[in-house]
Design a protein around this nucleic acid. Structure first.
Length: 450
DNA sequence: GTAGCTCTTAGTCGT
DNA sequence: ACGACTCCAGAGCTAC
C-alpha cells in the first residue's frame, strides 16, 4: 500500500513537472510557428496532401509516393524505376530537424492533451468498466475510423494515453512515422502527420512513460531516434551497424530503454548516462518483442525468431549469458510474447500456427491455441495482444478479420467489416479507454474499432 | 556451420 | 479486370 501511494506521488510529481515544462514549450512553439499557424487556419487545404517539389532540405516530410498518392512532380515521375522512396536524409547520423508547416499543430495537440489529461485514471473504475465489456457486441468499425495513412507495410501501432483524444503513432516499412489524430477538427486538415526519421522499417515505437511528447522509435536501419515534438527535432539516441527489432521503456525506471539488436542481443540504454549500460546475449536470433510485467516490473518477456519466448528476472541477469526463469519453446519463430494485464499470464504467438499461454505461479503451466499464422512475406507477422483484462486476445486473421480469442475456452470469434479492405496484422489497445482497438495493415491502412 | 538458392503470400499500382 | 511488381520473412534444401 505504502509503495503504491509513493509511486502515485512520484507519478504526480513528474506529471506536474511535465505540465510546467509543456506550458513553456507550447508557448515557445506557438511563438515560433505563429506565421505557420495563421497560415493553416486561414487555408482550407489539407495537411500533407500538398506536394512541395523542389524543396531540398532537412525536411522529413514524406514524398507523395510513399504516402500512397500518385506522384505528380516531374522529379519523381522521371525515375519510375525507383520504387522505393527517395534516398532519405534519415540515413545520416545526428539530429534531424523537422521542417514542416503542421508539426506545430501536432505538437500543440500532444502537449495540450497531455496537460489536460486527468492525473490518473482510477484503476478500479477501469476494471469495473472492463468486467461488463464484451468485444463481440461492443466492437464496430465505421468508415470515418479507417484511413490509409502510410504507403508501406505497417510494423508498429501505438496509442497515446489520452482519454479525450484518439491519437495514434504508426511506423511503416519505408521508415515513415505517421500520426493520426482521429479527433481532429473538421474544417482544418485531416489530422494526418507523416515524417521519415528512418531509412528502413520502423520496428518499434515507445512513448516516454511520463511524457507523451517524447516518442522513441527504432528501426532496421540501426538507429534509435527520439522525436521530441516540443523541440521539433528527431534526436539520435543510438546507432549501430545491426538492425534493431524491438524497443520498450522500463515502466518504472523511465531512464532505461531496452531494445533488441542484431542476432539476439538485448541492450539497455541509460538516459542519465547517455550510453548503453548493459548488454546481454539472450537469444540465437532476432528478438521480436520485449515486454514488462506491470505488476512485477522486474519480470521481462522476450520473443525470438529462434523459436523461444522467455521470461527473465532483471535482478538476476548480471552475466553476459544469463539464465531465464521460464521458456516457451515453439516449433518455429515466435513473434510476440506479452504479459496479460493482471500480470499472471504470458501470451506468445508463433508462425508454427499456435498461440501459447503461459500461466501459473511461476509461469510453468503451458497451453496452446491453434491459429493460422502463415502471413507470408508481404504481411507483418501476427501478434496476439491482450485486451483490457485477461479474458480476451486480439489478433489478425487471413480472412480480413480480427480474431477475438476467449482465453478461458479457446474459442475464436472473427470480427469482420465491409470497411476492412485488407488484413489487419498489427494491433494496439488504448491503455485508458476500454473498447478502443486499432489495427494496421500491410497497405498502410489503420482501422479504429470502438 | 553457413552461404546461397527457392518458394510462399497480399496488396498496390499502372495499364 | 488483369498482370507486373513488391523483395531485409522464414524455412527447407543443397553444396561446400
Amino acid at each position: 500500500m505504502a509503495a503504491a501511494k509513493a509511486a502515485l506521488t512520484e507519478y504526480e510529481r513528474r506529471r506536474l513537472e511535465n505540465i510546467k515544462r509543456n506550458e513553456e514549450m507550447i508557448a515557445s512553439i506557438k511563438r515560433k510557428a505563429n506565421d505557420l499557424s495563421t497560415l493553416i487556419k486561414s487555408s482550407k487545404r489539407k495537411p500533407h496532401r500538398i506536394a512541395k517539389p523542389g524543396k531540398t532540405p532537412v525536411v522529413l516530410r514524406r514524398s507523395l509516393r510513399s504516402r500512397g498518392i500518385s506522384p505528380d512532380s516531374a522529379q519523381e515521375t522521371a525515375i519510375p524505376t525507383t520504387p522505393s522512396p527517395p534516398v532519405s536524409l534519415a540515413k545520416q547520423k545526428g539530429p534531424l530537424r523537422i521542417v514542416d508547416d503542421f508539426v506545430a499543430t501536432l505538437a500543440a495537440t500532444i502537449l495540450d492533451a497531455e496537460e489536460n489529461a486527468p492525473l490518473h485514471r482510477r484503476v478500479e473504475s477501469l476494471q469495473n468498466e472492463v468486467e461488463s465489456w464484451n468485444p463481440a457486441s461492443a466492437l464496430s468499425l465505421v468508415p470515418e475510423n479507417t484511413r490509409r495513412l502510410l504507403a508501406g507495410r505497417i510494423l508498429t501501432v501505438c496509442f497515446f494515453p489520452f482519454l479525450d483524444r484518439r491519437l495514434l503513432a504508426v511506423g511503416d516499412k519505408y521508415g515513415n512515422l505517421g500520426f493520426w489524430d482521429a479527433d481532429f477538427g473538421e474544417s482544418e486538415g485531416d489530422g494526418s502527420y507523416v515524417y521519415t526519421p528512418h531509412s528502413a522499417p520502423v520496428s518499434g515505437i515507445s512513448l516516454h512513460p511520463f511524457s507523451s511528447s517524447k516518442v522513441f522509435t527504432c528501426s532496421y536501419d540501426g538507429f534509435i531516434r527520439l522525436m521530441d515534438v516540443g523541440e521539433t527535432v528527431f534526436k539520435m539516441i543510438y546507432s549501430t551497424e545491426d538492425s534493431i527489432f524491438s524497443l520498450i521503456h522500463h515502466p518504472n525506471n523511465t531512464k532505461s530503454l531496452y531494445f533488441g539488436e542484431g542476432q539476439g542481443d538485448l541492450k539497455m540504454w541509460d538516459e542519465s548516462a547517455g550510453k548503453i549500460s548493459s548488454s546481454w546475449d539472450l537469444h540465437e536470433q532476432r528478438i521480436n518483442t520485449i515486454d514488462f510485467n506491470r505488476y512485477n516490473a522486474n519480470l521481462m518477456a522476450t520473443s525470438s525468431t529462434d523459436g523461444i519466448a522467455s521470461i527473465w528476472d532483471l535482478r538476476k541477469i548480471h552475466s553476459k549469458k544469463p539464465e531465464c526463469i521460464t521458456t516457451a519453446q515453439h516449433a518455429r519463430a515466435v513473434h510476440s510474447a506479452y504479459f496479460s494485464p493482471s500480470g499472471t499470464c504470458l501470451a506468445t504467438t508463433s508462425i508454427d500456427d499456435t498461440v501459447g499461454i503461459l500461466s501459473g505461479p511461476s509461469f510453468d503451466n503451458w497451453t496452446t491455441i491453434k491459429h493460422f499464422n502463415q502471413t507470408g512475406r508481404w504481411l507483418s507477422s501476427f501478434r496476439a495482444i491482450w485486451g483490457w483484462d485477461d479474458r480476451f486476445l486480439f489478433m489478425g486473421n487471413m480472412r480480413r478479420a480480427v480474431d477475438i480469442i476467449t482465453v478461458e475456452d479457446k474459442n475464436i470469434v472473427p470480427l469482420e467489416s465491409p470497411f476492412m479492405t485488407a488484413i489487419p496484422c498489427r494491433f494496439a489497445v488504448h491503455p485508458q479507454r476500454v473498447g478502443l482497438l486499432a489495427g494496421a495493415t500491410a497497405g498502410g491502412q489503420i482501422y479504429i474499432w470502438s
